[in-house]
Design a protein around this nucleic acid. Structure first.
Lengths: 241, 241
DNA sequence: CGAGGGTTTGAATTAGATCAACTCTCGTGG
DNA sequence: CCACGAGAGTTGATCTAATTCAAACCCTCG
């Protein structure tokens, strides 16, 4: 459970400080803006906290804001009328949200762990973007990166077996590990249900598949939220099909 | 079979003309550049033609070029080692390709119908982009649009039934119809195999599902490459699940 | 006319879903 | 401290949607 040293006061006077000292800055598009101009960005940002389990973007709502996630983690998803859900991604510190061109959000977002985020007015942000080409470039790079990830996920969802999907997921998670964590140790803040909805499977299949991988000595599962990769090589091979 | 009035001569002197008179310009990111500056763009463009069935981007190859598709249509896809294929999108006139941030292409591209395309050196293009913020903005918009489409496709691949997938595909195709075509008439330049690899299904399932939709009076199939939507409303409902 | 794609249809098979039971964990309160 | 309950996770048995295997059926083109 993350604890925030500086609980945000809604409507509190904005200052440059939160941006300069933001520990998500290095991972974020914001670091395309140098210290001296950061104030322009900071005065647009409204910081807010979101509890675990709370939805902070609702698909179909007017897309007024950009978001920058500065702490915690969240899931992005789309829902069908009957409740079927597809999680399109998990996002962590430094991730930028709300690039949508349309007037409404194309997905929902819900905090998995307590989240802190910077909210920017879309219209003001767009105006600002004109003055910061480096920032815009960074956004373009991010979008391109996400597009590549999305294509990889389409391959997974369209063509991989359950086994390959779970292996791919573990493989990707182990690569995306925040540095300074034990090698081959994967933290899974999301539930099995979330993993299932991300991989286009059911909870049961995810659970069974994990158990089987454990039975084969590829991984260990010391607790439900932690996986140790015993054999990264074989896992990678499995993931690739 | 499209016939090009002006067969490109490789190495032919580049002029502004091909850009000014390009009939893909209206659909393309290029129209963010006004007439007087178009020359800057034109001098970077190398026009080339690609036959149907020919691959013009190979996954894993060095990503040296951007492409702008000015005629014809193509499929983008990823392959697994054993030949499984996921088509991540079909692209037509006006589509921009090759935004990848990494040093290599993340997907392959193959012409479905004869394709004409403008090739731009990535490095030169990026340099140029600095002088044309409107162009860069347009790229960002495109990327965002594609990201939204990709999320929709993930929902389809992860959570929709075969019936819903085929209905969604027909629905989307009917919306993306080039204007000036008969309402409710869908041209399908791609094969059943391509559709299957796009929807994460087999050829047989696609064929069976189409037949069933026809049996139910939702569509007509006057030829393999043409579908008439009899009941767009019910199709849309089906597509949504 | 016949060869060879692409497409359609049918029968058998199976990976994963569904349904159902059980376990584990963890927080609450007696 | 332990009993209890609720939710998440696991495991087993059955079922089914879609795949696989197999056989026509078309078009198109030489």
């Amino acid at each position: 459970m993350a604890v925030f040293p500086r609980p945000p006061l809604p409507g509190s006077p904005r200052s440059l400080e939160p941006c300069l000292s933001c520990d998500a800055r290095a991972d974020s598009v914001c670091n395309a803006v140098d210290d001296e101009h950061l104030a322009r960005l900071a005065e647009l940002a409204v910081v807010s906290d979101v509890q675990a389990g709370q939805t902070f973007i609702e698909e179909g709502d007017p897309a007024d804001s950009f978001f920058n996630l500065t702490a915690g983690s969240a899931k992005l998803y789309k829902l069908m009328a009957d409740g079927r859900r597809q999680i399109t991604g998990f996002v962590a510190k430094g991730h930028f949200l709300g690039l949508a061109v349309s007037a409404t959000y194309a997905f929902s977002a819900e905090a998995i762990e307590p989240v802190r985020l910077c909210r920017f007015s879309r219209s003001r942000m767009f105006r600002l973007l004109g003055d910061f080409p480096a920032l815009e470039r960074r956004l373009l790079e991010r979008a391109a990166t996400e597009l590549v990830a999305a294509q990889e996920q389409m391959l997974l969802l369209g063509r991989k077996t359950a086994r390959e999907r779970v292996a791919s997921f573990l493989h990707t998670q182990s690569l995306a590990a925040p540095c300074g964590r034990a090698r081959n140790s994967i933290e899974l803040p999301m539930s099995r249900g979330d993993i299932a909805d991300y991989l286009g499977l059911t909870v049961e299949t995810v659970s069974r598949t994990l158990s089987r991988l454990r039975g084969e000595g590829l991984i260990e599962i010391p607790s439900a939220t932690m996986v140790l990769v015993r054999d990264p090589g074989r896992l990678a091979v499995l993931a690739a099909g």
